[in-house]
């Protein structure tokens, strides 16, 4: 079967993360610590207030819980560093000479790593929910919860495509850190990792809702919380449109970048 090689990559990536289980576990704990700090900050911001932009304090906390959980699942960031290193050292050759798609490889690898994070994170986050159950709200209903999960999965794939496009930059420059952090800062803000996008002024919010970033973290989270945002049909259209664009761009760029590739260590 053509997909067997990719499940093999996925399994190997999973095992690789398993070897560093201690690191994975501490990383999970620290991401929970982040939620605690969100708790502190928002406690101060709420003060005497009951509701900010339609969010109660427990909803706000649940928002940060959801997006932290989701962004931890998107383990495709590693592909940026790995590709840069492989291009620099010349080991990228192995993807060119073997009958594998590099993107397929990246997808399988992220999925493998992500599924391990899912295990340790679930533990850490459950612990958090148990301790701070007063600040946690369940999904408004089953249909919304399922829709949120579906959009979250689409969001993970979108993130992978964006990371992959970033990784391709390493064919042009040796130092990927600069461009990567540049893109990452943009993404952090536009996906709602800093603050829920509902706090943005209306025009800006509308503008962001035309970009794919809106649907990666913020949209699934607001579906879960039952907040009024874009209609699911529109949302689906926008995110699929952008994924189509990225898909094409990625294939085009991959072919173009291979021409830059010298195949030897720099």
């Amino acid at each position: 079967m053509w997909w067997k090689k990719y499940t093999a990559v996925m399994k190997t990536s999973f095992k690789e993360t398993l070897a560093y289980r201690f690191d994975a576990l501490t990383a999970s704990l620290f991401s929970v610590m982040r939620i605690w700090l969100a708790w502190l900050l928002w406690k101060a911001i709420y003060g005497e207030k009951e509701i900010i932009a339609g969010y109660t304090f427990p909803m706000m906390l649940t928002y940060y819980l959801l997006i932290t959980f989701l962004s931890r699942l998107a383990r495709s960031e590693g592909i940026v560093w790995e590709t840069a290193e492989e291009v620099r050292s010349g080991t990228f050759n192995k993807y060119i000479v073997r009958p594998v798609s590099h993107f397929g490889y990246a997808l399988a690898r992220s999925a493998g790593k992500g599924s391990f994070s899912l295990l340790t994170d679930s533990l850490a986050f459950l612990l958090w929910i148990l301790i701070f159950r007063n600040s946690f709200v369940p999904p408004v209903g089953w249909p919304e919860g399922l829709q949120a999960a579906g959009f979250a999965a689409l969001g993970l794939f979108t993130t992978l495509q964006i990371h992959y496009l970033t990784a391709l930059i390493s064919f042009k420059t040796v130092d990927i850190a600069g461009p990567w952090f540049f893109i990452k800062n943009f993404m952090d803000f536009l996906t709602g990792a800093f603050i829920p996008l509902v706090l943005l002024p209306g025009v800006l919010q509308k503008a962001v809702s035309l970009t794919p970033f809106y649907y990666i973290l913020y949209y699934p989270a607001s579906l879960y919380l039952g907040q009024e945002t874009e209609k699911t049909g529109t949302a689906l259209a926008v995110i699929l449109f952008w994924n189509g664009v990225f898909w094409g761009l990625r294939r085009l760029q991959y072919r173009r970048m291979l021409r830059f590739y010298e195949g030897v260590g720099v």
Binding site: I45, G47, K49, G178, F182, F186, I195, L199, P201
Partner: peptide, 27 residues
Amino acid sequence: IAFVVDLLLFLFLLLSFTFVYRYTDSI
């Protein structure tokens, strides 16, 4: 590039706080 990246981060944090302060006067 390190400088530009840091400045960008500052800008986004500033924006975030500005938007938060639309809903409150003081933290």
